[in-house]
């Protein structure tokens, strides 16, 4: 059996195990507990296995995890169907090496600094007050689109190494989404990882002009001047 196939199976099992452990022992759905005020309803841990399964908080954790995973995957499917060419272009750009991915991360960091500063400055004038909301929405969509592309590329690369490359793109997306989602739900470190993935995704979307592949320069305007 191909070594990569064993690795993929092991990673999937590890990802599922990590998510189950996170749901059992950490408050993933802390916001939900607070909203529904169910934090105080935790069952006494006499028989801890039964208690964990009966615990309303743990059930909320599992529900939250499942809902998030399904939402992320369905959003990815939507992006794949809406803009397959753009996703392909972005994934090709990200597959050229780690240096390129690090460059995308740097672009994401610089863009978030730029947007933060511009957002604060724009609050000072009436005309530009809606800018933070618009910029925020654009950045969020870029980051999510980039994250979907990263998940797709990760799954595609792993399946290709395992010589399962003839499979559907949806399978590549599912594998990548599962691994990325498990990593972003690791207690304490998951938040940092999520920020890194979102910044890299946003940087990738922006650097590739949302997957259009057109270069970032002012040549069209200069051609106009020359004419």
């Amino acid at each position: 059996m191909n070594r990569w196939r064993i690795l993929i199976v092991a990673l999937v099992i590890l990802a599922l195990l990590s998510m189950v452990l996170s749901a059992l022992f950490f408050d993933i759905a802390w916001w939900r507990q607070s909203l529904a005020s169910i934090g105080a309803e935790r069952a006494p841990h006499k028989a801890w296995r039964l208690a964990l399964l009966q615990d309303v908080g743990v059930r909320a954790n599992f529900a939250s995890l499942f809902a998030n995973l399904v939402t992320m995957y369905l959003f990815g499917v939507l992006i794949l169907y809406l803009a397959p060419d753009r996703v392909r272009h972005m994934s090709q750009e990200s597959s050229t090496g780690w240096q390129r991915v690090f460059k995308f991360f740097a672009v994401g960091v610089l863009v978030i600094v730029l947007m933060g500063a511009v957002s604060i400055l724009s609050l000072l004038t009436v005309q530009t007050m809606p800018l933070p909301i618009i910029l925020g929405v654009v950045f969020l969509l870029s980051a999510l689109g980039g994250m979907v592309t990263l998940a797709y590329q990760l799954g595609k690369t792993m399946l290709a190494r395992a010589e399962w490359s003839g499979r559907s793109p949806l399978l590549s997306l599912a594998l990548g989404t599962l691994i990325l989602f498990a990593l972003t739900n690791v207690p304490y470190l998951g938040g940092f990882f999520l920020i890194i993935v979102l910044l890299t995704g946003a940087g990738m979307s922006i650097a590739t002009r949302f997957g259009s592949g057109k270069p970032w320069n002012l040549l069209p305007l200069m051609e106009d001047v020359q004419v």
Binding site: V107, V111, V113, L114, A117, L121, L124, W216
Partner: peptide, 20 residues
């Protein structure tokens, strides 16, 4: 405001430099 302006300019230069 001056600090924000400086940060904006630096970040913009960095982004342009990376993207070009």
């Amino acid at each position: 405001v001056l600090g924000l302006g400086i940060l904006t300019a630096s970040a913009l230069y960095g982004v342009i430099n990376l993207l070009s």
